[in-house]
Design a protein around this nucleic acid. Structure first.
Lengths: 163, 163
DNA sequence: CTATTTGCAAACGATTTGCAAAACA
DNA sequence: TGTTTTGCAAATCGTTTGCAAATAG
């Protein structure tokens, strides 16, 4: 895989939560407001696309902390519902801030070459999901859907085709 | 995660390719018909659900070969279109035999606890896929969709809830 | 003051790779 | 025989974990 074409493409959803709102959620659940946590949340806040732990770590800059701390915090934040984990099939987890309560989950269109990410609003499968659950007696059903392809820039740059 | 409830649930698609048909495909592309390859294909042939490299390895029995050889062969078979790789989000790739040319891709409903897998025939997103590709100028678009939940057995066995 | 959280280093599990020997065509 | 493939061991990479020191509330 190559380097990202662009750090982030057009954000379809605006970042509206303030750092204070986010830390308040921590406080509400009796989690401590530490420097690393604030830094991580702040990084996520200003990025409209899913970031890997390593990318978050790199974006910390001055507020640097151990990579392990980020891993631990992403678990914490995920279990609190503050962030959502995405899997783009390259063996590296990515995280995005959840925009408040009713934030409808969404999907992504990812370039197989440069990993440029485009947010996809549409989502069919929820309906299918219900039918499936009923049919097979499954509970707590969810789904994960991501689209992959080659972005215009990579096509022009003549990157080799990847299955 | 726990152990599999059942090694394989109801196969919705029948295994119809013979080992000979499969090796013929290798021959057609000038790939050598080695013992490990035949063994791997034979294991896949008799399993109706995606298997991990480790599971394939374990199923080899007498025809045992190095795990690295399996990894290498899965890449080969994948690039030849003989198998399809699936990602159930647990950091381990799984492979399934592709049933001939027009084998419509399908999806899975996976138990978050025991990893029991149910094949899902329905597939919405292909249509969406086209629209997305057009809208963003992407080519070679594909998608990956998997459903997750808790199967009836695990629910009764009172396994703890996993996010 | 006391439970949580962090840093550091070591452990892990899946996957990949270098290289010489073994096996197909 | 010439090329592909295998076995073995070591290397990588993302992620997790043990433990003592640092810190929030």
């Amino acid at each position: 895989m190559n380097k990202p074409c662009a750090q982030h493409a057009h954000p379809h959803r605006l970042v509206q939560q303030s750092l204070t709102e986010l830390t308040d959620k921590l406080r509400a659940r009796d989690r401590k407001i530490t420097a690393p946590r604030q830094a991580v949340l702040d990084v996520l806040r200003r990025h409209a696309h899913p970031l890997t732990n390593r990318e978050i770590h790199a974006a910390l800059g001055k507020a640097d902390c151990d990579l392990a701390t980020i891993y631990r915090n992403m678990h914490t934040l995920e279990s609190m519902g503050l962030v959502k984990r995405y899997d783009f099939g390259d063996g590296t987890a990515r995280f995005e801030l959840v925009q408040g309560e009713g934030d409808p989950h969404h999907h992504h269109l990812v370039c197989r070459h440069c990993h440029t990410i485009i947010e996809v609003e549409d989502c069919f499968p929820t309906e299918l999901e219900q039918r499936l659950a009923a049919r097979h007696g499954f509970t707590e059903v969810s789904h994960q859907l991501e689209f992959f392809g080659v972005c215009p820039r990579c096509r022009r740059d003549g990157a080799a085709s990847v299955p």
